[in-house]
């Protein structure tokens, strides 16, 4: 069995034993369905607070789904960063990583197994959340074509994976786990703001993917610059992974 697969299975087993495989998908599911549910009850909530319900326009199904996606970008991202901040740093700190790296294991397999573990878990979580949103939107409002559901999800998930990779990279580089989460989220926030402010010059920005995903739901098309952003985000992820492997190796062999 290849070392990568062995380490990947260890990651999977670990996140099963510490319940990450249960709680993270369930929280994303709640994030996903909270928006259709509150929208459904909105007329009653408004009525009981004395506002005429027909003053507030009822959003369309695709609008509801687009808003759900943005939940993953805020609370979802916070949860992912907090869950993965110690993925490398904590093992290095406790010394358990020595037990792996003293065997004939390359830093590349070690880091790629970590990244794959994060990726599979993240995709499962947003996937479950999106399915929940879709299901609720369909039974409470008009139905949405499934093609829009999964394409928008993939585009949005790529943004989350990009931030995950930053968290992994920082985890190879830094000691303080709090700092790792803080900087990861900071990068996400700064990128989002810069992309909005410098709309014309930041067409390549990974944070464009969030807008593109909403566009897919609202208009069926991600917009002209989407593929540029997708290609560059994938390139960034690859570069960050290479950086993580180098950082991990340096951290061990130089100090």
């Amino acid at each position: 069995m290849s070392t990568w697969l062995l380490l990947f299975r260890k990651e999977m087993l670990e996140s099963t034993r510490n319940y990450k495989w249960i709680w993270i998908p369930l929280v994303f599911l709640l994030l996903g369905i909270s928006n259709p549910v509150t929208t459904y009850f909105m007329p009653q909530i408004l009525e009981s607070s004395g506002v005429a319900a027909d003053l507030v326009p009822v959003p369309t199904s695709v609008e509801i789904m687009a808003k759900s996606l943005s939940q993953y970008g805020t609370l979802g991202l916070l949860i992912l960063a907090l869950s993965f901040m110690g993925i490398v740093a904590a093992e290095r700190q406790s010394g358990s990583a020595i037990m792996v790296l003293v065997k004939p294991v390359s830093h590349r397999s070690y880091i790629l197994a970590k990244w794959s573990g994060m990726t599979v878990l993240t995709l499962a979580a947003v996937g479950l959340g999106q399915l929940g949103t879709w299901y609720y939107t369909n039974i409470l409002f008009e139905s949405v074509p499934f093609r829009l559901v999964w394409t928008s999800l993939l585009v949005y998930a790529l943004w989350l994976l990009f931030i995950n990779t930053i968290t992994l990279f920082l985890s190879c580089l830094m000691k303080s786990v709090g700092g790792i989460a803080f900087i990861s989220l900071g990068v996400a926030a700064v990128l989002a703001i810069l992309t909005q402010v410098l709309d014309h010059t930041m067409k390549w920005s990974p944070s464009r993917l969030t807008g593109a995903a909403s566009q897919i739901l609202l208009s069926g098309q991600g917009g002209g610059d989407m593929w540029l952003a997708i290609a560059l985000t994938i390139a960034f992820i690859a570069a960050l992974l290479a950086g993580s492997v180098t950082a991990s190796r340096r951290m061990w062999t130089k100090s």
């Binding site: 709680w23 369905i33 909270s34 549910v37 009981s48």
Partner: peptide
């Protein structure tokens, strides 16, 4: 605020998921 039949069906899964999370957290603890 009245919950219709559909309303209950909508709310119930949310409550169940929250309960599951709470139970798992307590078991882990």
């Amino acid at each position: 605020m009245q919950l219709g039949d559909l309303g209950l069906q909508v709310i119930l899964p949310v409550a169940i998921i929250e309960l599951i999370l709470m139970v798992i957290a307590l078991v882990d603890l």
